[in-house]
Each structure stands twice: as structure tokens, then as C-alpha cells.
Simulated assay, not measured.
Amino acid sequence: MSRFVAGKRFLGRGTMSTIPGRFDVRIVEADDCSKAEAIPDTEVRYEYAKTVISSNQSPDIPFRLSVNPYRGCEHGCIYCFARPTHAYLDLSPGLDFETRLTAKINAPEVFEAELRHPDYQCQPIAIGMNTDAYQPIEKELKITQRLLKIAYEYKQPVSLITKSSLILRDLELLQLMASEHLVHTAISLTTLDNDLSRRLEPRAVSGAVRLKTIRALREKNIPVTVMIAPMIPFINDHELEVLIQASVDAGAERVGYVMLRLPHEVAPLFEDWLQLHFPQRAERVLNHIRSMRGGQLYNGQFGKRMTGEGVYADLIRQRFHLARRKARLDVRDLNILDCSRFQLPPRSGEQMILF
């Protein structure tokens, strides 16, 4: 059930819906829409995590271990597949997801303890795969920066994906890590249309700024992949070839794409967003999404959830591969991250410091 109010929106937020999570037993009614709208403030609460390294067995993603320093994301991307995770916190995957954030304030300390655990076996760790590790609150809290410093000290290889130029704050550290094959970065690129960007991802930087970020990373020999995501029928799919060429021109070594995913509460939120911003083409967009998902708005089946299936999905796939060839992008699998350097630096009080 959506709390969407037709024709109304909060400036700077991806949604004004307080849609309940799928586990919620309470329904919160929206205030009278005739009242003046105020932009909701961002609230950050601190969490003391017991563990931070999580694992997955998904064959669709190129990493098994990950660390997520934040829950929720202020970027407010309406399409974010992580929105449903707020339901586990008894919060709305709608407006709460982008305004009521959680910071794992002790994440660096727990991360280090887990790296030092006798049973830990080094393998690449992805940082910020669920919600952006460089979202705006990172500028003050610096949890991601502290995680990277520990990773470098232990020679623990990591990968990062972000749509934020804040990653350039850590450029010197990333350059050091890259020189030892300890880091890989990825930039998420959705559109070069500033108006569409403000609607889709209201608190994220523009596509042009992301291209500048790619250039800045590559100038320091930091490996960069661009993920063109998500591809949305009749919203940004016409930009596919332009986005690929612009990414390669900016220095991207690899390019990938992901079709729009609408798990759980993301589906009604996205439907509301379409009715608000693109009412005349909403049904056309939704029908093409269903054509890729077996008649539904989402199919979470491994092997299909990232790319979809059917005529339209095949067309996007063909266009992607053709555009990548035209851009003369080397599609070899680059061996970027090196786990052989992993080490446990001595700590005060340990016998090793005597040698």
C-alpha cells in the first residue's frame, strides 16, 4: 500500500511515499496534502555492529564478501534495489530509506578484528555494495576512509562502487593501493540528462561530474569499471551507446550494464514515480518491464535478474555488445586484485614487535 499523493513531491527527495515495509503490521496515513510541504531532514543514528564482513553465494555478482558501512542512502535513487532492506528495521523503504540512515560507527574496528581472526582467509572484499559507501554523510563520518586505511595496512584487496565524486577525497590512498593491486573502483552511470538525473537520483552528482571522476581516477592509474545502471525502457535506454562511448572516452577499462530491478517495495515506489514524472508513458514502460520479467514487474531468478529475458532484453544486450565493440573497449578479464600480499601488521604488546 503506497502513501503516494498524486502531483506532490518533496524537492531533493526521490519519493514522498511512506509505503510500509512488507513486514509492517502498522499503516501510517499521510498528512493532509493541502498543507505546505517541508523537505524532510536527514536523521542519522549510530549502530555498534558485532560483525561487518558479510558473505553471499549469488552467481550474479563478482564478489563473495562485502562490507556496508551504512544502511539507507541519502542519494534517494528511486530505483535502488536496497530500499527493501529498510523493512527489516521497521522503517519505510520509501522516504525513510533516504532520510533515516544508520551508520555503523564501529565498522573499522570490527573490520580489523575480523581480518585478524585466525580463520580468516584473504579474498577480495567489496565495500558499499548495498548502499553507497560515499553517500553525503561519509564526508563527515569518514567510515569508508577508515576502512580503506585498514585494508591498505593489511594489504587486503577491496573493490568500491559509487556514484559520488567524494571518492576523490581518498585519491592519494587509492593510488597507493592501486600501485599494489589492492583496489578496483566502479562508477555507476545512469544518464547524462541533468533533468532526468534530478528526478531519478535527486541527491547524487550529475553524469558529467561522474565522468570527471572517472578521468581523475584513471589519471592516477586507478582501475575503473563503469556500470550503466539501471537501464529503464523508454526512460534512459536511448542513451546506452552514448553512455558507453563517454565512459570509454573518460578512461573506463570495463563497462557493464544492469536492467532495472524492482524487488518487493521498489515496484510500487517506481510505479508512483512514473505516474508523477512520466504519466503518459508509464504503462508503456511497465509493460516492457513485464515483458522482461515473465509477465511480472520482477523476477529474482539467478542468471536473469540482472539482464532480464525476452525480445527487449535481447535487443539491449545486442546494442550493448555492439556499442562496446565500436568503442574499441578491451573485453579481456583483467586480473586486478592481488590477495598474495595480505599480512597481519603487529600490534602493541605482541611479541612480533620485538623482532
Rank of each mutant, 00 (worst) to 15 (best):
S2E: 09
S2T: 15
R3K: 12
G12Y: 04
G14W: 02
M16A: 12
S17P: 02
R22D: 12
D31G: 14
S34A: 12
E37T: 03
E37S: 11
P40A: 03
P40K: 03
Y46D: 07
E47Q: 05
R64F: 04
P69G: 07
H75R: 03
T85D: 08
H86I: 00
L89H: 10
L91N: 00
A103E: 02
R116N: 12
D119Q: 13
Y120H: 14
Q135V: 13
Q135H: 08
A151R: 04
P157V: 14
L160M: 05
L176F: 10
A178S: 13
E180S: 11
E180I: 04
H181C: 03
V183F: 07
I187L: 11
S188I: 05
V209I: 15
I214K: 05
R218T: 10
K220W: 01
L240G: 07
V242K: 14
V242R: 15
D249P: 03
G251L: 03
A252F: 06
L262G: 04
P268C: 12
F270A: 02
W273Y: 11
L276T: 14
H277V: 12
A282P: 03
V285M: 01
V285W: 00
G294Q: 09
E309I: 15
L322E: 13
A323E: 01
L329G: 07
D330A: 12
Q351Y: 10
